[in-house]
Design a protein around this nucleic acid. Sequence first.
DNA 1: GAGTGGTCTAGACCACGCC
DNA 2: GCGTGGTCTAGACCACTCA
Lengths: 260, 260
Amino acid sequence: MHGSDGESGRGGQEGRLPVYRRIAEELRATVTSGQLRDGDQLPGENALMERYGVARATARQALRVLIDEGLAVARRGSGVYVRQFRPLRRHGSRRLARAGWGSGTAIWDADTNGRTYAPDQVTIVEQDPPEAAVRALRLDPGDRVLVRRRRYLVEGRPVQLAISYYPAGLVAGTRIADADTGPGGVYARLAELGHAPAAFTEELRARMPSPEERDGLDLPDGNPVIAVMRTAFGEDGAPVELNEMVLDAASYILQYDFLA
Amino acid sequence: MHGSDGESGRGGQEGRLPVYRRIAEELRATVTSGQLRDGDQLPGENALMERYGVARATARQALRVLIDEGLAVARRGSGVYVRQFRPLRRHGSRRLARAGWGSGTAIWDADTNGRTYAPDQVTIVEQDPPEAAVRALRLDPGDRVLVRRRRYLVEGRPVQLAISYYPAGLVAGTRIADADTGPGGVYARLAELGHAPAAFTEELRARMPSPEERDGLDLPDGNPVIAVMRTAFGEDGAPVELNEMVLDAASYILQYDFLA
DNA sequence: GAGTGGTCTAGACCACGCC
DNA sequence: GCGTGGTCTAGACCACTCA
């Protein structure tokens, strides 16, 4: 029998799900009910073909639903597994006027403790600034910027790509141009130059990654990223740094504490 | 010719892209280069089949790449179109100690101006609290909560689902239990009760939506959401509200300003 | 080497949109 | 009514993983 057999192909109709969606629902239920847990293997293409009497493409499509939802990951040559979610907690502003506010009230768990966080790739160049850096750093035409690119790992897994921009005139010849910025890092060096960051603005977006970001973060299908544009300002109100971060959304919970 | 023809099926090999990825690359280029712009129609399945001499499934797969990346949307019976991105800007903490910090430095554009923002669905119930509300509001066993559910529209488009929880003992019998909370909204009513919010904690995650969230926000494939858990605290440090928001990631830029 | 997911072909019927 | 995307079948070869 080819094509629709009289029951299928009615995607739009009330109460009638396409076959692949029905299969996906049943698979989802085994995950959300706790029957299958983090890292457990789901039934594969062949198993679904046999169990439901469908073609390979239909079985694939059902698995794709879960993968695109971020509930499962496919491992070529091995199988499809329940996705794990064990995030880090990243704090923006965390200073509060009183104790009792903000502490001990975490809603989502995040076990940051004891996990190392370090860059495995650092490249530094001086170049003409991209548009975003011109705006954020309020550069004049002809100004150049120092660019620091890093990739950060936690337990061997890449979780963040970062690109920082500094006005070249401000930091040229300092350790900010070195791979190793010394004790206290970039902000300590900026402070020594009389430009200690005093205030920050962060702009956040979430979206699907570009192919380069997918590669750099080793992301599975259906894994969004969080793009953070962070501008640091000195005491005088002048911007001293633009930090453009791309976070694996599955690896992060972001927290901001602030007053009314 | 069946199956691989000697060139295809080498997904893993260095420098060799599967056919559908090569097609996707070319399509992506027409978008990122500006050749095709917001809302323009992309070549459809039939066009790709003819142009590249591939099967329908392969043409579909190529389009799927762009759709999953959030670069395109499919409209059944019509075609595949370049996705639009016209976000709102949502401010968390925006108070800064000095002028010059944070203002006029926006990196990503967001035209919030003149767009109405209003709920089209409001439901209110009293019930036993879910786990997240127990933790955030520090409830005792047996405590009940008032739950306000809303969906917010901008220009007729749903952009946010929100569920707020209040300790039932705190707000029972007040206008917070009404669909119309009166001038100043919920926070004005809390202030009248002597529990004006004085501090906030926001925890953010980005992920793919659940089927319910997809329906409620009318999201296309490949569209992530931002989940915000916002806890409001009174002057005395006691939590007075948990607000659980789910934002269409394509409709929002989130901004936080804070001091070092 | 057996089993897995990844890619691909060549067909088919359907619901939907738009003119 | 025609073109669109959505679903589905029945096959095939491939690269990869793991015992």
